[in-house]
Structure formats: C-alpha cells, structure tokens
Nucleic acid binder design. Structure first.
Lengths: 166, 166
DNA sequence: TTTAATTTTCAATTTTTATTGAAACTTATG
DNA sequence: CATAAGTTTCAATAAAAATTGAAAATTAAA
C-alpha cells in the first residue's frame, strides 16, 4: 500500500468514527489529515486535500482549535496561518470528552437534579421522582467518572486499565 | 410539581441527552415514557402520549426491543402488544454500549487493524502507519474497556468507581 | 375460512444538520 | 495610508436523518 491510499483510507475511517461520536465528519477528517501530516498545513491546503469549501474549512478548523485539538503555527516570512494537530491520542480523547461533557452531559444533569429535588404534589409524582432519582445518581456517577478521566494523565488510564482487566 | 409536568420535563431532558448519545430523540422518549410508566403501554398509547405517527412508533419500538431496552408483554384477554422498559439503568447503559460498540467501534477497528498491518510501500507510508498504529492501540484499549463494562454487573462498576475516585 | 384487529413496510415529505461561496471584514506590508 | 493577502461571516443550498401516513401483510377470533 502506498502513502496516498493509506492516507485516504484512514481519513475515511476516522471520519466515519468521528461522525458517530459527536464530531462531524469534516471536523474528524481535518483532524485526521493533520494527524498524519508531517508538517502543519494551511487552510488552502486543507481545502484542497479534502475538497471542501473555504467556509466549511474555516468553521471546522475554528471549532477544532477551540477544542484544543489543533494549534496555530506561524512560519517566519509567511503571513498565512498553519495548523498542526494534537497528536497524543490520549490527550485528544480527553479534550473531546471535555467538550462533550460540557455541551451534553452537564445541561442534562442540571435538569435531572432539578426534577429530583422538586417538591412532589402527589404520590404518582413521588414515585416518578424516585425513578428519576436513580437515573440522576447514575448519570452523576458517569459524569464524575468522565471528569476524572478528563483531568487524568496517560498513566492513570493505563493503571486503571490494568486494574480493570485483572 | 405535578406528575404531568415532571413526566414531560423528564421526557424532554432524556430525549435530548439520548439524541446526543447515539439514540434518536423519539427512541429515547419512548424509553423515557415507559421508564416512568407504572404499567406497560400499547403502541397506540405511546403514539398518543408522544404525538408521533404509527410508523415512527413502530420502528423505534422495534429497535428498542432489538436492543433489549423494551420487552413485549401480553395481557390475558387482550390481543394488543404491551411494552415495558428495562428499568435498571445500569443494564440500560450496558445494552446501549453493546449496540454502539457493535455498530460503530467494531467496524472502525477492523479498518484500523487492516491499515496497521498492511505492507508499507515506502518510508512515508511506514511513518503514517506508525501513527495509525498508536491510534489503533488506543482504540483497541477503549474497545476492550467498553467490552469489560458490557459484560460486567452493577457491583463491578461501583468497585471501579470507588477505585478510580481514590 | 373469512373477517377485523393489529402490526409492518416504505415511498414521499418534513425537519435538521452540514456545506457552499461570495461578500465583508481584518491585518500585515509596501 | 493604501492595498492586497488572508480570514471570517452568513444567507442560500444541498445532503442526511427523521417522520408521516396510507397501503400491504400478518394474526387471532368468529
């Protein structure tokens, strides 16, 4: 297999996987492209390699940058911005987890907590509340676990993994 | 708060959360409705309570049932099928994890493994392959972790949680 | 077996989400 | 300061995903 084929197959696979895990396809592909790239690329180059529009490239690069998955790099004597990917896959996964927690889990938790602690008017409500309480507790635990992961370092997870598999 | 309001707010929150975690909004809402329901409901009742069409109800109930999140119940003297939700939230999360692993993670892993082990034509390819290898190893580890979770029981996770938080 | 209740299917439609591309804006450099 | 290179915005468009509803298929009771 040559590097072009490998590159293209990886972009496709990573784009699909990303698409299913809260990152849109293009965003995942931009990240994948830069993960495999030897050197930082410009917006122009990303547009050309992925055959996407300027607007699309710009907006996804921005989100990736906000998430901490890409870094801007400046080359001496060049006015253009270059982008390079965060390549430590452990860190990548923590950064993604952090964003998803923030955008999806936290708001849901907030509502669940509210429902759990609301004053129940009647017996039927109280029963429902009990069930919601269980769900809240579980979700809260999942959230804490995720948070612990987000705050952790690579070693921590390796230890956890060893522990779990034993 | 009365039971009607609690119910509706929970349906909304759970629908949104589900929507972000690989379950579509309606599917999550059907499950939520049955989670809070005292007794099993028919398709008709689900359609009415969520104001959705027959086709939509049928197709999402089917998927939920295939995933193991709903069970069919038959009432003596009634021809209709009733549905009840799996209410153990631990089990629910394991069942969802199982499906997502099957549908999303496994296919991606298969491709990554293929790319990792393909014969590299040149140095550039070999370098990319190394990077892909790292990603494969990580993804594989995530997959194994997920699998361990899927196979586990509620106690296991509680122990893990205690372990992690210490 | 016929009939009516119930469930399933699926093409058409609606809704949601992602993408384009041109214009507006910003910023370095002569 | 003027200009051109580079970046961002956003209304319009396209693509993808969810939903509808009516017709077909299935099933249980008469």
């Amino acid at each position: 297999m040559d590097s072009k084929e490998l590159n293209s197959r990886f972009l496709h696979a990573w784009g699909t996987l990303g698409g299913n895990w809260g990152i849109n396809r293009t965003m995942a592909q931009i990240h994948a492209l830069l993960l495999l790239s030897e050197s930082p690329l410009t917006t122009e180059e990303i547009m050309a390699k992925l055959r996407i529009s300027r607007g699309n490239a710009n907006m996804n690069i921005r989100t990736l940058t906000e998430w901490g998955l890409l870094n801007k790099v400046h080359k001496a004597g060049d006015r253009k911005e270059f982008f390079e990917a965060e390549k430590d896959i452990w860190k990548v996964s923590r950064l993604i987890a952090r964003e998803r927690r923030k955008r999806e889990l936290e708001p849901a938790l907030k509502i669940l907590e509210e429902l759990k602690t609301a004053t129940a008017d009647d017996e039927a409500t109280r029963k429902m509340q009990e069930q919601i309480g269980t769900i809240y507790d579980f979700t809260k635990m999942a959230d804490s676990t995720l948070d612990k992961f987000i705050q952790s370092n690579n070693t921590w997870f390796l230890k956890l993994f060893a522990n779990m598999m034993s």
